[in-house]
């Protein structure tokens, strides 16, 4: 419950405060958000499976974000940033879908 509240508070604060994102981080923010979403879905699935460990969740969340940003950064340096970020988004999207499917089976039994 508190975790859900955390998400809601984050969205509200982001909309109200309108913080300035440093220009250096800006290109990586969308990818990082998608990566974090993947981690959250993974965590939710683990919880429904009864194998949720908060340490694992924290590590996967952070490493997802960092690795996604790193890949995009590397792609920018190599001159294939656009293509690489597309690739990352596709891979993460697939993972999110498979996790969502597992969650769906738990929740709806279907």
């Amino acid at each position: 419950m508190i975790a859900v509240l955390g998400l809601v508070v984050g969205v509200v604060v982001g909309l109200l405060v309108r913080p300035e994102v440093p220009a250096v981080v800006e290109p990586y923010l969308p990818i990082a958000v998608v990566a974090a979403l993947d981690a959250v879905f993974g965590g939710l699935r683990a919880m429904l499976d009864g194998i949720f460990v908060d340490k694992v969740f924290v590590v996967s969340f952070l490493s997802n974000v960092v690795v996604a940003a790193l890949i995009v950064f590397l792609g920018d340096k190599l001159g294939v940033g656009a293509q690489l970020s597309t690739g990352v988004v596709v891979v993460l999207g697939i993972r999110i879908f498979s996790n969502a499917a597992a969650i769906r089976r738990h929740v709806f039994r279907a």
């Binding site: 508070v9 984050g10 969205v11 982001g14 958000v33 974090a36 959250v40």
Partner: peptide, 17 residues
């Protein structure tokens, strides 16, 4: 709960921004 709430807060923040 608190740790996950913190991470989700960060996620929501990034999403909103």
């Amino acid at each position: 709960q608190l740790i996950v709430a913190l991470l989700l807060f960060v996620l929501g923040l990034g999403l909103a921004i």
